[in-house]
Design a protein around this nucleic acid. Structure first.
Lengths: 213, 213
DNA sequence: CAGCTAATGTACGAACTGGTACGTTAGTTA
DNA sequence: TAACTAACGTACCAGTTCGTACATTAGCTG
């Protein structure tokens, strides 16, 4: 009991310091971009100091890299929880689309980081080899479902899984990424909870409609 | 004749200086974001000096605003050239989707600016009131086509034009905006000319498939 | 509890960056 | 052609920002 209390009161806690820096840095980089994020600002929003960024990560760039890796790891880990083997192909595709939909909505910081990384021509991403495996496994899942659908004579047989993944991603991505310009130009909030179910259904209709023979 | 030569050799040419600054600034802001773009760098890439940015525009922010306004004006002007009244509804929708598709592909800098503006919660866009009119007219065009399709008994009657516009935009936007991360993660270049026709057709199938009764 | 090291804090510097004061000149106009 | 102004160039400043040298201490270990 005193132990637990002692842990909670520790003044020095490397893991907590690291995690705290990553959490704040994720928000900062997502919100301000790579060059827009301020090292001083990140430090100021933690219980620790700027010195620790250099102590634990080495510098601004390595901190950004660590943020990127963790963000992708988290989102793919969540995707693997989708259990679609017991569903019929049409329902399974719809389910996968919904998981992606929910995920994008729940992780706006991740979406922004993807935008930030693309703005830099994905030059940092190439340094994180592990990400490739993480992502391809997500597409494998979809590929299996499509194959089942073709076997059952439900789906077209000339469709590429990666294309379908892109179709789903683009819809989900846009809704979150372009929320603000869309709101300004058309006076419609794409993330309005009132319209959430509508868009979720729309995505499912869109994808299954495209796949159906 | 000497007049023409004189014009070409003018050392002082306000319009050319302004245009040149806008052109370079568009590239710089698109490539590096608002805070990432450097006023010195923009000036260095023109025949003029940094001083002129402050002389003609007032500052970095006003220059960015001018860039944004011009970029949107151009893209919407091009959209208005799509003549779809003589096409049947299905072909017309496909045609509109293709115009958007072509446009996104031809103007990567515009796509990036949209991303930059969203990163800033579209706070600058609100200062350019004219943009709202420009954009809503593009949707009006689509709305008309959809209404014709419904009248002809070809399309579902429960579809919102703005939703369809979003569907089209998201596909086109994603393909250009996320080109780099997609390439890094799945080793597929979404802008590969070899696959261009495939994606263009896919978009048309997707949209008309969704609309069809 | 002495000694050691990982962890942390402080203070500062060098380079960068947006912005401006001030001087100069091209080109027009009377 | 004299005078005037819009257009342009130079030099510099003040604030910011990443990074680091150096000092300090918490907490473990023998």
């Amino acid at each position: 009991m005193t132990q637990e209390k002692a842990v909670a009161e520790r003044q020095r806690d490397p893991e907590r310091t690291r995690t705290e820096l990553l959490d704040v840095a994720t928000e900062e980089f997502a919100e301000n971009g790579y060059s827009g994020a301020r090292v001083d600002e990140i430090a100021a929003r933690t219980r620790t100091t700027k010195r620790m960024i250099y102590y634990y990560f080495g510098g601004k760039e390595q901190l950004y890299l660590a943020v990127l890796e963790r963000a992708y790891s988290e989102i793919r880990a969540a995707e693997r929880t989708a259990d679609v083997d017991h569903l019929d192909p049409v329902a399974a595709v719809r389910r996968l689309a919904e998981v992606t939909f929910d995920h994008h909505e729940a992780h706006p910081a991740f979406i922004k980081l993807v935008g930030v990384e693309n703005a830099q021509h994905a030059k940092h991403m190439n340094h994180v080899a592990r990400l490739v495996d993480l992502n391809s496994s997500a597409v494998d899942l979809l590929r299996g479902v499509l194959a089942r659908g073709v076997d059952d004579g439900l789906f077209r047989d000339d469709v590429d899984a990666l294309d379908v993944h892109m179709m789903i991603s683009s819809f989900c991505f846009f809704r979150v990424a372009n929320r603000h310009t869309w709101g300004a130009l058309f006076d419609r909030d794409l993330l309005d909870p009132e319209r959430r179910e509508h868009y979720r259904t729309m995505l499912g209709d869109l994808v299954t409609g495209y796949l159906r023979k």
